[in-house]
């Protein structure tokens, strides 16, 4: 079987969002070794993070959408992973965001990338609903969800019922 992965590229004022590729694995693995990954399934070992990175790519192959590598214009280095995430057990389709290093925070980068992905989900992927699953205590992510106009939906189905998270629901058509 021939896989032709024709993945979209999203461009914003300052960023280029492209599909992750093998060259991004090290940045992804380094992030998942740190405490910064505590709200997104980490920290984890190099071995686990490599598997997870493989899953990110496999997600694109299965669904035709997935998480983008976030790069700054003029520099193809991945500084985060933002995009569309819908593993089999997720009750709804998600837009998620991760910036690898603290130095990239506070500049509106995650906001800019997430807004582009939400727009893409409504207008191109034609999603009917969008949520963001956020760990309790992840205050910067909660603040970002609120800046995006999302609101807490306490009645929404949980992706991992054994360890409930906050479900932020994005407003239809809005990014």
């Amino acid at each position: 079987m021939s896989y032709h992965l024709d993945t979209p590229v999203l461009t914003t004022d300052r960023l280029i969002l492209r599909a992750p590729q093998a060259e991004d694995a090290d940045a992804f693995i380094s992030f998942y070794a740190t405490e910064r990954a505590q709200f997104t399934g980490g920290p984890m070992t190099e071995r686990q993070a490599w598997n997870f990175f493989g899953t990110e790519i496999g997600h694109w192959m299965m669904h035709g959408f997935g998480m983008f590598a976030v790069t700054e214009k003029g520099d193809d280095t991945a500084i985060g992973i933002v995009g569309h995430w819908y593993p089999r057990t997720w009750p709804e389709k998600e837009v998620g965001w991760v910036l690898f290093d603290a130095e990239h925070e506070g500049k509106g980068i995650a906001l800019e990338a997430a807004r582009a992905c939400i727009n893409h989900a409504w207008t191109v992927l034609k999603w009917e609903t969008i949520v963001s699953y956020i760990a309790t205590g992840n205050t910067s992510s909660i603040a970002l969800a609120e800046r995006l106009g999302a609101t807490l939906d306490p009645m929404a189905a949980q992706p991992k019922p054994d360890s409930p998270c906050l479900v932020y629901r994005h407003k239809k058509g809005m990014a």
């Binding site: 896989y3 992965l5 496999g58 593993p87």
Partner: peptide, 15 residues
Amino acid sequence: ELAWRNPAMELGHWA
């Protein structure tokens, strides 16, 4: 959840 990740990971390994 992890079992789902496996087929995705299988494809990612090829890539």
